[in-house]
Design a protein around this nucleic acid. Structure first.
Length: 488
RNA sequence: GGGCCGGUAGCUCAGUCUGGUAGAGCAGGGGACUCUUAAUCCCUUGGUCGCGGGUUCAAAUCCUGCUCGGCCCA
């Protein structure tokens, strides 16, 4: 790191402490009696009592023979008052070697200062760690996005919002687990390293197993393994875990991201709609304390039931065109182009419809809405509608102009599934590298009989963005992928 | 991959248009101070201006290539 003299000064202080027999790195633990926030919350009953707090020093205000500190722990900040006459001359002199960023343990008395600030007046203090690197500016904190991501630990220390986001993310994950577990769903772990990357249309990462001398793919989705578990008689299951897609990075995409998939045997798309609504409503009320969220300046109500339109209906409503009547791919493509949607890489009618949905319609879908009835060629794992086999029993849920969930009544007919894979293979041969691959092992599982089932996928990072009003996925991933900074 | 914007002290930012010895605040160092809370007061250190090439008497500033990041588009 740069700022060499700043580091040198701090090292000198460390050495000076050690010369006096104090090693700031020697302590193994410091039993705390309270967190900072607990002291503030319970001041009336704690006033005059002894307490032990510990945390990081974020500000030092020295007045000669008395010194105020701001001490931060996971709950927040509390002011510490150190007075020479209370801690003793010898101990007080050690403050000369205290730096912003150091971690201290304080044994003291809960008081209120003349100005009314709840404070711990120290009887004694203990160095628990010395910070050798200079800290970001106290008022503006760490602003530069690159630095915030590369030095996330500093971001967490100095930017309160960052800490709030990741604590909220943790509560969302816990909330999902609680919600599903309470309803009898069982959490499972399926392979992240797969021999055939399936369950979604995306570029996989490739890795290699040395002992078996074979290539493996990091999963792009857990779907095909979870369906094998449906075959195995696990009827209500979910997996909450990391998936990997070897694609571009944007405000909405990180190469690794967290996906929730839920499967309900003997349930259909309608059951999944209810489950999705209930879960989002539950999370909002439990975590935000409100059924309403604010995202990008817009108020969004998560109160069920959510609206529901077919793909054709929503396209007609937003573009004025009845796309159901447009059966020719070229005509669809021309029409899309007239709306400003380029479709040169797009091969099928279904893909054109999806692109128009994504580019034109999606940003306008602010309030929660299920869009259902997707063309079969873009839904190779979903069951067909009985009365119109071109369409599938599938919905996508949009909230705040973002796709939040994707769900099917799952295809369990091994003959149809084989045909769908074959169609995907054709597209693979035409150069569509995102086409799904023939998976004989999965087809074999289907041939043993998979019960009818509803399945749901939710992008957790986008959900956290929604719940924390974050403009970028990097704001809700602790360590988003960045190129390494070259060192000299 | 394309477009736009940015990288200047540890941090937050001026300075670039209009070339002429690189600035502020905080942090740091020295000093004063026993109720401050962006403490205050006096003094003060600190720079590969992202990296390379070019233009020029002279480049943080103009041109160019690269690099890292942000936003938008694909």
């Amino acid at each position: 790191m740069a700022g060499e003299s700043l580091v040198q000064h701090r090292i000198q202080k460390l050495l000076e402490l050690q010369r006096r027999g104090i090693n700031p790195f020697a302590e193994e633990k410091f039993p705390r009696t309270h967190l900072a926030q607990e002291i503030k919350d319970n001041f009336p009953s704690l006033e005059g009592n002894n307490c032990k707090v510990a945390g990081r020093v974020l500000a030092i205000r020295s007045h000669g023979r008395s010194t105020f500190l701001d001490l931060q722990d996971s709950s927040g900040k509390i002011q510490i008052l150190l007075r020479q006459d209370k801690v003793g001359e010898e101990r007080y002199a050690l403050l000369e070697f205290l730096d912003i960023g150091d971690i201290l343990g304080i044994n003291g008395e809960v008081i209120k200062t003349k100005t009314g600030e709840i404070t711990v007046e120290a009887n004694d203090f203990l160095f628990l760690a010395k910070a050798l690197q200079p800290f970001p500016e106290k008022w503006h904190g760490l602003r530069e996005p690159e630095l915030r991501y590369r030095f996330r630990y500093l971001d967490l220390i100095v930017n309160e919002r960052t800490k709030d986001i990741f604590y909220k993310r943790a509560r969302i994950l816990q909330g999902i687990r609680d919600f599903l577990t309470q309803r009898g769903y069982v959490e499972v772990d399926t392979p992240m390293m797969q021999t055939i990357p399936g369950g979604a249309s995306a570029h996989p990462f490739i890795t290699h197993h040395n002992a078996l001398d074979m290539d493996l793919y990091l999963r792009i989705a857990p779907e095909l393994y979870l369906k094998r578990l449906l075959v195995g008689g696990m009827e209500k299951i979910f997996e909450l875990g990391r998936c990997f897609r070897n694609e571009g990075i944007s405000t909405r995409h990180n190469p690794e991201f967290t996906l929730l998939e839920v499967y309900l045997a003997y349930g259909d798309l309608e059951d999944i709609k209810r489950l999705t609504e209930d879960m989002l409503y539950h999370l909002a009320t439990a975590i935000l304390g409100s059924e309403e969220i604010e995202y990008r300046g817009q108020k969004i109500s998560l109160k069920p039931p959510f609206r529901c339109l077919s793909l054709y209906e929503v396209l007609k409503k937003e573009t004025g065109t009845d796309w159901e009547k447009i059966e020719d791919v070229e005509e669809a493509r021309r029409l899309a182009k007239s709306l400003g949607v380029e479709g040169d890489t797009v091969r099928t009618r279904g893909e054109v419809l999806l692109k128009v949905l994504e580019k034109i319609v999606e940003p306008r879908l602010i309030q929660p809405i299920f869009v259902e009835d997707f063309p079969v060629e873009v839904s190779p794992l979903a069951k067909r509608r009985r009365e119109n086999p071109y369409l599938t029993r599938r919905f996508e849920l949009f909230i705040g102009g973002e796709e939040i969930a994707n769900a099917f009544s799952e295809l369990n007919d091994p003959f149809d599934q084989r045909e769908r894979f074959k169609e995907q293979m054709r597209r693979w041969e035409e150069g569509d590298e995102e086409a799904q691959r023939m998976d004989e092992d999965f087809l074999l599982a289907l041939e043993y009989g998979m019960p009818p089932a509803g399945g749901l996928g939710i992008g957790i990072d986008r959900l956290v963005m929604l719940f924390t009003d974050s403009p970028s996925i990097r704001e809700v991933i602790l360590f988003p992928l960045l190129r390494p900074k070259e060192e000299e």
